[in-house]
Amino acid sequence: MIINHPLLGPRDAQEFTYLGDASLINRPDWQVQNAADAFYEYAYLRDNPAGLHRELWFHEIGDRSWLVVTRNTVTHEIINVEMAADVARSQGRSK
């Protein structure tokens, strides 16, 4: 697979390590009432879709940035690549 890095251009997927579902960006607030439930769902439950999947890849032997890659899990086709920091900021996070 070739991951089209937003800053560095097309890079071999071997340069990256894979973390998992991009929902891992959305760490729950530990102070809310149902924090235990929220963290259980955050840590353990996954949609695991067959088809488009937004997921976190880390450019380990490159520029060490985190990317959100939208990829088809049935064909391995990569549809879109964004900087994870940009995705987090667009959701109102500071970083």
Partner: peptide, 18 residues
Amino acid sequence: GSSSRLMSNANMRLPIES
């Protein structure tokens, strides 16, 4: 192998990735 796909029909999310 297809557990998440099947169980999503029952609105279940599983502690599983394929």
